[in-house]
């Protein structure tokens, strides 16, 4: 099963790269959806011994939420706000990619420094999830539109989820569902917020909210 796990992890990194280098919101949402599906498949790939109903249910819930529900909400937010479909980065795409590579190298280095006292399914699961967290944070910081910031949060959460899978073999079911609910609410609120920002200001550029300062 390790081979599948590694392939999924590498695909996760690649999706990070695409997110960093992509200029269209629609693309970003689609990639984030794929990433959600892959993360959802992770517990199924890690469960080499006991493939229980619990794990399957959790996987399916994650896949459905992150792969289908969230993207829908985001897409609707874009459609209803009828704003520009561009990412509008603060940091250019090539520089973002470079930052992604640096984040990846840094997380592999960090992983060499931190030694987890437990048996891991794959040699790269910890650094990959660390780099996903860094990338998510970077996306939140370096992108202008609110939708993209939501995507950044999603990537960050995916990273946390993957890391928790790696470290705590049996994810407490309820805790995980709680996190999912949090994300759901977050996306929901963001969606409404995007809609409101757009209604009020005719754009959804979160940077321009700075004008609201007294």
């Amino acid at each position: 099963m390790t081979a599948y796990l590694d392939i999924i992890l590498v695909a996760l990194i690649l999706s990070d790269f695409i997110l960093l280098g992509s200029g269209r919101l629609g693309n970003c949402i689609r990639i984030a959806a794929w990433q959600g599906i892959m993360v959802g498949l992770l517990p199924i790939a890690t469960a080499d011994a006991g493939f229980s109903f619990r794990i399957a249910a959790l996987g399916i819930a994650v896949v459905v939420l992150k792969g289908f529900v969230f993207p829908r909400l985001l897409n609707r937010a874009i459609r209803e706000s009828a704003s520009s479909r561009e990412v509008k980065p603060f940091v250019g795409y090539t520089t973002s990619l470079l930052a992604g590579v640096l984040a990846l190298s840094a997380s592999f280095w960090l992983d060499g420094r931190l030694s987890f006292p437990l048996h891991l399914e794959s040699a790269i699961v910890v650094p990959v999830s660390l780099s996903m967290m860094f990338t998510g944070l970077f996306l939140v910081v370096a992108r202008r539109t609110a939708v993209n910031q939501v995507i950044g949060y999603l990537v960050l959460e995916n990273g946390i989820y993957a890391l928790s899978l790696a470290i705590v073999r049996d994810v407490p079911f309820l805790v995980e569902l709680g996190v999912l609910m949090d994300m759901f609410v977050a996306v929901f609120v963001m969606g409404i917020a995007i809609y409101r920002i757009n209604m009020e200001f005719d754009h959804m550029d979160s940077n321009r909210l700075a004008k609201l300062r007294g």
């Binding site: 590498v10 790269f17 795409y93 470079l98 590579v101 190298s105 592999f108 650094p127």
Partner: peptide, 19 residues
């Protein structure tokens, strides 16, 4: 950007290979 992406993929491959 696409070519920079190719470079990033190469670096990723290298990191994985050392691992």
């Amino acid at each position: 950007h696409l070519l920079a992406g190719a470079g990033a993929i190469s670096v990723l491959a290298f990191i994985l290979s050392t691992r």
